[in-house]
Write a protein that binds this DNA or RNA. Structure first.
Lengths: 201, 201
DNA sequence: GTCTATATAACGATAGAC
DNA sequence: GTCTATCGTTATATAGAC
């Protein structure tokens, strides 16, 4: 393994950590360098400037959230299984990377320009298969009247809101870190149950 | 109306706008001054520094979200009405101040220290009345088994997530600004329906 | 109270030796 | 490739005239 790769990788991982913790504006190049255990100049050697380094991290982060989600939505499995897969996926991902969802959502709002360029190029839109699936279920009387958009929004909301608002949740519900993790894990079963038993006639 | 009050008020409103748009780290004192149409030095005359100005805005923002929510939860009305009131309240508030929820949630995560001091002093915790109400409904067989915490989390999630992730939602669902507002307003009826018809046996 | 001018510090970025 | 030293800019904050 060449030394270059190791350094570039160390920088990337450090940048990921600091950007996710502090956001673009709050992150300091010096802090990233310290986290990586290298000199600040190396950041500019491997990545031209703060913007480039940020975009590398941001794009990587989006790719950890989006493709799998839309892959599941476009797949050829029953609606109920799709919901269960998405719920499991997001809760697993959160355990590995607790600050990822809040980071992506926030930076998306802050710099709409920055990401609309590249996010259009990856097919990030609700698959027709999924839309049809919901419509068919409604038409055949299996589900109460609802659009695919609203159905999708309900699932994503129930999953991600407690992850994004961690500090508010822990404060209001007075949970320790461990209790908070337990609280989230309980939701793996609760979410599909609420979604479906609320929609099935 | 004394001139002092007018200036202090103008500064506060400008700061509110800029902080909510850019966050603490992204906000610039100069931009706040420009927005208020006054000299930058005035910011330091009325509010000692950026931190003080921010905390004034942040505390005011929290007070626009929390008390009414917990007031409704603690009130003496049926569970279903509480949910409907909360949903209406959040959707009305969002129309008036679209960036408020994202601002509070994000800054809460960034500076846990900063707000835990003052947020403890305002009774921000789930009212016993509400917890008991959910427990009673479960015990008497009216609702499927669920805790007050999880019930509460479901309502707040369904309401606030689409408001916080506005840019993601509009991108994925390919909605114009007007369509997005319509999409949110539809949820006033959808949310209570999903929550309850999912829980009522 | 409000302004101009300036101090002071921090940050991103670069030059240049090795 | 990696370091030290430093430049240029921008940010918050203050001093002082009016």
């Amino acid at each position: 393994m060449p030394i270059e790769k190791e350094t570039e990788q160390k920088i990337f991982e450090a940048a990921q950590k600091i950007f996710q913790k502090s956001g673009f504006e709050g992150a300091r190049m010096q802090e990233i360098a310290d986290e990586a255990g290298i000199n600040k100049s190396m950041l500019h050697y491997y990545y031209r400037n703060k913007d480039t380094l940020f975009m590398t991290v941001f794009q990587s982060s989006v790719k950890k959230i989006m493709p799998q989600l839309f892959g599941t939505l476009a797949s050829d499995i029953p609606l109920r299984e799709k919901v269960e897969q998405i719920v499991e996926f997001y809760h697993d991902m959160f355990l590995k990377n607790p600050q990822l969802p809040a980071f992506v959502i926030y930076e998306m709002n802050q710099h709409p320009q920055r990401f609309k360029d590249f996010i259009g190029s990856m097919g990030v839109q609700l698959p027709e298969v999924f839309i049809d699936q919901v419509e068919d279920a409604v038409d055949s009387g299996k589900l109460r009247s609802i659009t695919g958009d609203q159905f999708f929004m309900n699932v994503v909301s129930m999953c991600m809101m407690p992850m994004i608002a961690r500090n508010m949740v822990q404060t209001v519900l007075q949970l320790t870190d461990d209790e908070y993790i337990d609280f989230l894990n309980e939701r793996r079963k609760i979410i599909p149950s609420v979604i479906f038993n609320g929609l099935i006639i």
